[in-house]
């Protein structure tokens, strides 16, 4: 169920002094079953792009299809689309409103017009998938939960719609290291068990390096490049220029390369770096001895 975007252009506050082109002939294909990360400086158009993906912003110019649904058509079955593409916004816990967690998670499925029994099944399943104990939490007020639990409950509200594509806008914002790691693990497990395609917007390059299959770089409302992280993070100068960075392991790889020591593969995470360096140093010494 790929997303195909062609020449998508969008202008905010059209015909006012504040007019601003947020997207400018953006072209991108999101493949089935991939973990795609979107990176870009503030104002590069990330948020406008993902809001197009479930028609929170309607296509103004350009073409966009999600699976068999044509989003640039005049009429779009929003209910069906929003069941296909689940969107978890930044700080999703701020959208909780119901008296109990179960009721809040049921909000999405209810809006989809599902029968009562089906809703109950989905709510139970979504809460479990998000790593919460259904029986323990279902009748509690979402406002009493801890920060991490709140965020999980909010994500469950989207998961309960059983989207095939899950969009996460900075899911780790504001969390401490443990909370960040947990939420990213949750994203991975949701990809395995519920939503095969995941699109994640992130500012944290170490997280992007660890999880992305491919990374789309946004700049000035267009796609600058789409590459697997191992390739992308070789281009440190380009990313720096866009106000982005590279993960620590990649930075070290680039520094070593500049000093004449090019390790064959760019390591993405500390474990990889340490192992690859040990290999390289060991191998290098061996060769020199021969």
């Amino acid at each position: 169920m790929p997303i195909v975007i062609k020449d998508l252009t969008y202008t905010y506050m059209r015909k006012t002094p504040y007019e601003k082109k947020a997207l400018d002939r953006l072209t991108l294909t999101v493949n089935d079953g991939e973990f795609l990360c979107i990176i870009g400086a503030t104002g590069s158009g990330k948020s406008t792009l993902i809001q197009h993906m479930n028609a929170l912003i309607r296509v103004e110019s350009g073409e966009m299809t999600v699976d068999d649904m044509v989003l640039h058509a005049k009429r779009v079955d929003l209910r069906r689309l929003r069941g296909k593409v689940g969107m978890v916004f930044q700080y999703p816990e701020y959208q909780l409103f119901e008296e109990t967690v179960a009721k809040d998670v049921a909000f999405g499925p209810k809006n989809m017009g599902l029968p009562q029994e089906e809703i109950a099944v989905r709510v139970r399943e979504a809460i479990r998938l998000c790593g919460l104990d259904y029986d323990e939490i279902k009748d509690r007020s979402p406002f009493e939960l801890s920060g991490g639990q709140k965020r999980r409950a909010a994500i469950a509200g989207v998961v309960a719609m059983r989207p095939e594509i899950l969009i996460l806008d900075e899911p780790t914002a504001g969390l401490d290291p443990e909370g960040r790691r947990d939420i990213l693990e949750l994203a991975r497990s949701l990809q395995r068990e519920a939503s095969p395609t995941v699109i994640m917007v992130s500012h944290n390059m170490d997280e992007v390096a660890r999880h992305a299959d491919r990374v789309a770089v946004l700049a000035d409302g267009g796609i600058k490049t789409v590459l697997p992280p191992r390739e992308l993070f070789k281009q440190e100068a380009m990313l720096e220029e866009l106000g982005l960075g590279v993960p620590v392991s990649a930075k070290l790889w680039n520094l070593l390369k500049a000093a004449g020591a090019e390790m064959p593969l760019l390591p993405l995470v500390p474990e990889e770096f340490a192992a690859m360096f040990a290999d390289y140093a060991g191998g290098g010494k061996g060769e020199r001895r021969e």
Binding site: Q51, L56, R79, F107, K110, N111, M112
Partner: peptide, 8 residues
């Protein structure tokens, strides 16, 4: 927007 995304 968040609630619309949940079908509201």
């Amino acid at each position: 927007n968040a609630q619309k995304a949940r079908g509201a």
